[in-house]
Every structure is written in C-alpha cells, then in structure tokens.
Design a protein around this nucleic acid. Structure first.
Lengths: 196, 196
DNA sequence: GTCTATACGCTGATAGAC
DNA sequence: GTCTATCAGCGTATAGAC
C-alpha cells in the first residue's frame, strides 16, 4: 500500500519470480532451470524476468541473497555452545532445501569469475562468516596444534561447503553429525557448562 | 604404430582433444569452454569432438579421469606423516592448475544428477579416498572427541574440496597451509619421528 | 512501470555425406 | 572412422503496447 497504488505490483512480482526460480531448481535441478521454465511457472514470458533482474545470473544471485536473510546465522556473538548448535541447525535445515544447496554450490563455482554478479556476494559472505566464527569460537587450540581464528573459520566454512558437495552426490551422508563432530574436535578443551 | 596404420590417428586425436579442453578451461574459464572453442584449438568442428566423446559432459568427465591417473594420491598405505605430506603436495600442485580445479568443482556440482556421466566417478573417488585415509590416518582420536575413520576421511575430503571453492574466489587463500594445520589437528598425539 | 512480440547469435546435439 | 550441414533450444536485446 501507499506510494500511490502502483509499483507494489512490481515488488510482489519480484518475490514471485524469486520463489518460482527456487521452486524450479528444487524440482528439476539447476541445469534445467531455464528462464523459460521459470517464466511459465510465474505465467509470463522470459523477457519479463529480465525486466526485473538484468540477467539469469543476477536473478539467481538474488535468490541466494534473499534466502540468506532468513536462513543464515547472523546472530551477533554467541557463546561457543550456542554458536555450535546454531550452525549445526543451519546445516540440518539445508538438508530440507536441496534446491538451495544446489544453487549455492553452483554459484560458488561460477562466481570464481570476478565479473560474475555473485563474486562479491561470496567474498562478503566468507568475510562475514570468519568474523562470526572468530567471535564465537575464538582461536583454536588443539592438542599440540594451534590455529589463528581465521584459519579455524576457513576450515569450518570449507568443511561445511565440501560436505554439501558430498551430500548432493550421496544424500545418505549425515552432514549435521559430521559437522558437529568436527566442531567438537576443533574446540579447545574449554570449560563447558554442564547444562546442555 | 602397429594395428595396420590406422586408428592410431583416432587415439592421438582423443589425447589432443582432452589436452586442448583442459587448456581452454585454464585460459578462458569453464563457462567459456564451449565445444566450438575447443574444436578451433584442435582444428576441427565441434561435431568431431562429439564423435569421439558422446557429449560435452562425457568429454569433460574424461579429462578429469585422465588427470586423476597422474595427479592423484593413490599410493597404497603410507604411514601418517608420509600420507600427510603427500596429500598436502597434491593440494599445492593444484594451485598450479586452476583449470583442473575449476573443472573438478564444476563437475562435482553437476554430477549431483545421477544421470550425469561423472556421477559414478565422484562416488567411486569418494569411496577410494575414504579407504586411503582410513589406512593412512586410521580412526581419529582427539582430545575428548573421537571419530570413526569414515567420518575423519569425509572431513578431510570436505575441507579439501571446500578450500578449493574459497581459493577459486580468492586465490590468496593458502590451501596447503590450512590443510596441513587441519590434518595436524585431527591427528591423535602419535609418536612422530624427529627426522622431518 | 510492466510486460509481449520478435529476432539474434550461440550452444550442444543429430543425420547422414564422404 | 571422420566430419560437414543442419537443427532446436538457450539467454539475451530491443521496440513498443499498455
């Protein structure tokens, strides 16, 4: 409402397109998610999609960005145990949205090209994750080995992304359990409340 | 030689195509590595490529398979220290063949589709890696946490694949150093020879 | 601002000529 | 066995209807 009646329609259309795109990816796989397919679900022509988003790559990047708002762990600084369970919950939730995992992984590869619209997204996301992890897990100290916080964060991120690749090829892989085991292992033997 | 003059040409062409494909990917990126581009380098038409390999996907899968013969760590069972340095060497070598890393990562995503020719390749590779790691690293015991050998292997594989994604987006990421830190951390406090 | 109609160049793939 | 000619489908650009 407001803004004199119009262009609320455009906003709604944008949402509709983003949802339909993710829906098609989930049902038919990323490869078969053509603009034509998505446009048919929405009930418009492919050119209409390009009116709102400049290109297919930008459209898909936007799907990812939008989903990040809800699904991602951006809670400021949690203590270690909360951060762990929160992160594992995100992983567990991902097993219920295979289309999103496929989209994320595919764009992570394509975005290697600095010209790709998702390139900045992945750079920013990585930096953000490292900050969050640094705050939550701190520097890792482990047996005779020690990491700086940055290395620890990169390892957790890498393991998470890599597990998704394994899971897409073999969905019997238990991502949450493996991630939990890893995070436990990388924790220094810190005093842990017996509550949880 | 031998085999009555002919069809040695075909074998040579196959090799030539596989090498040119990897070359084009390295120079122009996976996205721009069209059959047309590769065919031009070889000096034939795109259809000639499809004569030798049934489809683009099969061609690229074959490039990956071929490279695995040399580059991969298949030495039987090494002791822990040798396995670690051998694995880190493979990672280090990968930083010198960005085209191969791009190809591997792209196919790892596409192969989620069970119909993709690389699907079996990735299933087999994952199983082989798990066996190798189990033999070399054994089950991990770490502080108060312990893994079975399978979980440990999946973590190392996931971290390795995930680091490649990070490295492709930001080549300043030091893959070998991070992998070495991780493997060190996941090792139980085993007696290590002071030689190395 | 929202969208259709139309057209273009390029892709991977096919049928069949040599 | 080797490859040319041809094809349908893709993402995209543009002009202009509403």
């Amino acid at each position: 409402m407001a803004r004199r009646g119009s262009y609320a329609k455009g906003v709604a259309r944008r949402e509709e397109i983003l949802e339909s795109a993710l829906d098609v990816i989930g049902r038919k796989g990323y490869q078969n998610a053509s603009l034509k397919e998505i446009a048919e679900v929405v009930g418009v022509t492919p050119a209409a999609l390009l009116h709102y988003f400049g290109s297919k790559e930008e459209l898909f990047t936007e799907v990812l960005r939008k989903r990040d708002e809800h699904d991602d762990m951006d809670p400021a600084f949690l203590d270690t145990a909360e951060a762990k369970s929160g992160f594992v919950d995100v992983i567990r939730h991902n097993t219920e949205v295979p289309g999103l995992v496929a989209l994320f992984s595919r764009l992570a590869v394509d975005a290697a090209d600095p010209e790709h619209p998702a390139h900045r997204y992945f750079l920013d996301r990585s930096e953000r994750l490292r900050e969050t992890f640094a705050g939550s897990f701190g520097a890792g100290r482990l047996g005779r080995t020690s990491f700086d916080a940055d290395t620890l964060a990169r390892i957790i991120q890498a393991a998470s992304d890599g597990l998704q690749l394994q899971w897409m090829i073999d969905p019997s892989v238990d991502m949450p359990a493996i991630m939990e085991a890893l995070i436990d292992a990388l924790q220094p033997a810190a005093p842990e409340p017996s509550s949880d």
